[in-house]
């Protein structure tokens, strides 16, 4: 009797171990199977995102109309400013040439459409409809016309995964535009970002603009990240942190630009 029980127990243990082993193998295969699976899913994802966009256009017709009128007025105003800035730019260029400074800020950008988002609450990821075939590679920065959006972390033939700046997995080396104070901006999964490793006496104020420092190889210098909305002291009392409101509304991204260095 006890021999039988032992055999049953052994069989159960063997089954349990083999299931766990199988699961571990499957879990480790996830990264390998991602590429083909995402490539298969890109067509339904593209169609669904188009349907969503059209539906939103119909639902929010009136709001869009009012917004359109407002934006047209803003464009007129900005055009005037742009003309003025063009003058300054040309002047700056002439002066730079005089000083023999080599400018290296010519970047190629590729526009991409957002076709999906991460379903879980613990990461902030978007999928875009451009991949290896369009020259996208891992590590390329992603921006919108308002500022920094994130970075490419995975690329398949036609789809890329972008980790947004409000994801805690991502850290961006940044500076305060006014005082050139350095810090590290990372996400908190909420609507704001946090700039850490600021010295106790750091020159930072509310409403200060935060831009990329250009110290890391991933992000070009001067990309707008956001503005400071709160300043606090770390628990240790040795350093300060700043809460930053991102310049880009990361919940409403529809099109983005990938910078190809």
């Amino acid at each position: 009797m006890s021999w039988r029980l032992d055999k049953i127990k052994k069989n159960t243990l063997l089954k349990f171990t083999s299931i766990i082993f199988l699961l571990l193998v499957l879990a480790s295969l996830v990264s390998v199977l991602r590429n083909p699976a995402l490539n298969i899913l890109r067509y339904p994802l593209g169609v669904l995102s188009l349907i969503r966009q059209e539906l939103l256009g119909i639902i929010f017709y009136h709001r869009n109309m009012v917004e359109n009128t407002k934006l047209s007025q803003e464009i007129d105003l900005l055009n005037q400013k742009l003309n003025h800035l063009n003058e300054i730019y040309l002047e700056n260029k002439r002066l730079n040439m005089l000083l023999s400074l080599k400018q290296n800020i010519s970047y190629k950008v590729t526009a991409a459409r957002v076709i999906g988002r991460s379903p879980d609450n613990w990461s902030s990821v978007i999928l875009i409809d451009k991949g290896i075939h369009q020259g996208i590679k891992v590590g390329y920065p992603v921006v919108s016309y308002l500022g920094l959006v994130g970075r490419i972390t995975e690329v398949t033939n036609f789809i890329s995964k972008v980790v947004l700046i409000n994801d805690p997995h991502l850290g961006v080396s940044a500076i305060v535009q006014r005082s050139r104070q350095e810090g590290l901006v990372s996400g908190t999964l909420g609507g704001s970002l946090i700039m850490r490793y600021l010295p106790k006496g750091a020159d930072i104020k509310i409403s200060d603009v935060i831009v990329t420092s250009g110290l890391s190889e991933f992000y070009p210098k001067g990309l707008l990240i956001g503005t400071v909305v709160e300043i606090g002291e770390e628990f240790s009392g040795l350093s300060k942190y700043a809460v930053i409101k991102p310049a880009v509304d990361l919940n409403k991204l529809e099109e983005v630009l990938v910078i190809i260095p």
Partner: peptide, 24 residues
């Protein structure tokens, strides 16, 4: 459960297939 976990992991930013393990 394994299939659902795997598909969820496709879209998430996880190094390891955490849902592929957890769902079953």
């Amino acid at each position: 459960g394994v299939l659902a976990g795997f598909l969820k992991d496709l879209f998430s930013e996880n190094i390891f297939g955490i849902n592929t393990l957890l769902f079953p």
